[in-house]
């Protein structure tokens, strides 16, 4: 199956578990996702994201990305251009016919590329501001 590439001008949303939100005085708001939030899955599957242009086309916004999630879950927004600079390719990979559908399934994509270097993941994390956090997050070091 051939997957289409997400345009460089687009952005992607990444769900961030509460335990992966860290404080960093260098970023606006002082909170961001840890670089540990930008990894491929342990089984080797590429990192999942949602393409912003399609989320918008669905009549949704970034809050829909964490639909059904508990307090503390965040949404990081990453420019596709930044991912490309870090040698990552963003491909559309819509989720279809699943038992428990998610409102953003048609916007689902994968980020393919080497994410082993921590410096790379740090640059991606710092360039991916949190645009939404469900309720209130309490950070404990």
């Amino acid at each position: 199956m051939t997957r289409s590439e997400v345009a460089p001008s687009d952005h992607v949303f990444r769900r961030v578990p509460p335990v992966l939100v860290v404080s960093d005085p260098k970023v606006p708001g002082g909170l961001r996702a840890s670089s540990s939030a930008f990894c491929d899955d342990p089984d080797g599957s590429p990192m999942s994201v949602y393409a912003m242009s399609i989320v918008t086309r669905l009549g949704l916004d970034h809050t829909a990305v964490v639909y059904g999630k508990e307090s503390g879950w965040g949404v990081a927004q990453t420019p596709v251009e930044l991912l490309a600079e870090e040698e990552q390719q963003v491909l559309l990979d819509p989720v279809v016919a699943v038992e428990v559908p998610h409102p953003c399934d048609p916007a689902h994509g994968i980020v393919v590329g080497d994410k082993q270097p921590k410096s790379r993941r740090e640059r991606i994390a710092r360039g991916s501001p949190l645009v939404h956090i469900v309720h209130i997050v309490h950070i404990v070091p």
Partner: peptide, 27 residues
């Protein structure tokens, strides 16, 4: 500056420091 403790998806733990001038992660 004390570290922030963060899990990794492969069952590890990272100690992270993020200050105005320093970023350090020990994983």
């Amino acid at each position: 500056h004390k570290p922030q403790l963060v899990p990794t998806i492969n069952g590890g733990l990272a100690l992270e420091w993020h200050t105005e001038s320093i970023d350090m992660i020990i994983e």
